[in-house]
């Protein structure tokens, strides 16, 4: 379990990284926290000739208050997001989800950019950026694009990123006042990738939901929004009947895969259960139900 011979290039600026990436194209892979990429290298399942190490680029790691939104640099460690007061206050969903990623030593190295670019169907962040309707800033020598979260995830481990592009920043809209959130998931062991996880971001006005966003991870080829369930909650509120109906709608909307850890049926069912728990928790936190 050793990777084949490869070169590691260590650019110290974003511009340098982008030009290296453009020069080497498909031959190269960016290296962020290495928590997903290094195991793949060791198993020789990913065989780039060159690694472009982003860890020396100091100005890709930041969490900034930018008025209506928070801007997070792609190389920001998961642990920094978990510990950020700004994130906790303005995007509590992101903070709560982060605590459920893997284990502390992994969050010390793993980055938000790496997780989103990796697009593991069971990872938490893709569901969060869908629910928060984030924008992802990507750059290449050709220029900058802003991709809506909804357009970013294409398939298992596949995103809208071109080979010469780097994800550089995540734009996280601040949660509006009156909003509440919850991230819940179930895994076989604490810290594992979710069998089903739900990111719920709900805005209430006079105890009635006005904007409901429910995104799921672990139950399909990519994270996705559960629009049928969203509509039910938005229309019928957060009473037990509505939650039950939303759970059922969510369960039938997802198309999960079977693997060693869970059958598709079980994942579907868990999706429904998690919807119920997430909506309830968010509503409780909003003080809408007790």
């Amino acid at each position: 379990m050793k990777p084949p011979l490869l070169d590691i290039l260590t650019p110290s600026s974003l511009a340098e990284a982008l030009s290296l990436l453009s020069e080497h194209g498909d031959e190269a892979r960016p290296l962020a926290g290495g928590q997903s990429l290094v195991p793949l290298l060791n198993f020789r399942m990913s065989r780039p000739a060159i690694l472009i190490d982003l860890n020396q680029i100091a100005d890709l790691a930041y969490i900034k208050d930018a008025g209506d939104y928070i801007a997070i640099g792609a190389m920001t460690r998961e642990r920094s997001i978990e510990d950020s007061d700004l994130v906790r206050k303005e995007a509590p969903l992101l903070q709560e989800a982060t605590t459920q990623i893997a284990h502390l030593p992994i969050r010390n190295r793993g980055t938000i950019g790496g997780s989103l670019a990796n697009a593991d169907p069971a990872a938490e962040y893709p569901a969060v950026v869908l629910a928060l309707e984030c924008e992802l800033v990507v750059q290449s020598v050709r220029g900058e694009r802003r991709i809506k979260a909804a357009a970013f995830f294409e398939d298992v481990l596949t995103t809208a990123l071109e080979p010469d592009e780097l994800l550089t920043e995540i734009i996280v809209p601040k949660a509006p006042s009156g909003s509440s959130s919850a991230f819940v998931e179930i895994a076989r062991r604490h810290g594992d990738f979710a069998l089903a996880g739900i990111a719920a971001q709900i805005t209430f006005a006079n105890s009635a939901p006005t904007d409901v966003r429910l995104a799921v991870c672990g139950a399909g080829t990519t994270a996705s929004r559960l629009t049928a369930a969203e509509e039910i909650i938005q229309r019928d509120g957060v009473g037990p009947e509505a939650i039950k109906a939303a759970s059922e709608a969510a369960a039938s909307a997802v198309d999960p895969m079977s693997d060693l850890h869970a059958s598709a049926d079980y994942r579907r069912r868990l999706t429904g259960v998690m919807i119920g728990q997430a909506v309830e928790k968010a509503a409780q936190r909003a003080g809408v139900i007790s």
Binding site: P39, G191, L260
Partner: peptide, 26 residues
């Protein structure tokens, strides 16, 4: 948690700790 799982072709499906689940302290 722990299971060395073989498919019907005698292929071992649990070749890493991603799939062979050891209990952790939690």
């Amino acid at each position: 948690f722990e299971e060395l799982f073989y498919d019907e072709h005698g292929q071992l499906m649990t070749g890493s700790f991603m799939d062979y689940l050891l209990p952790t302290a939690s």
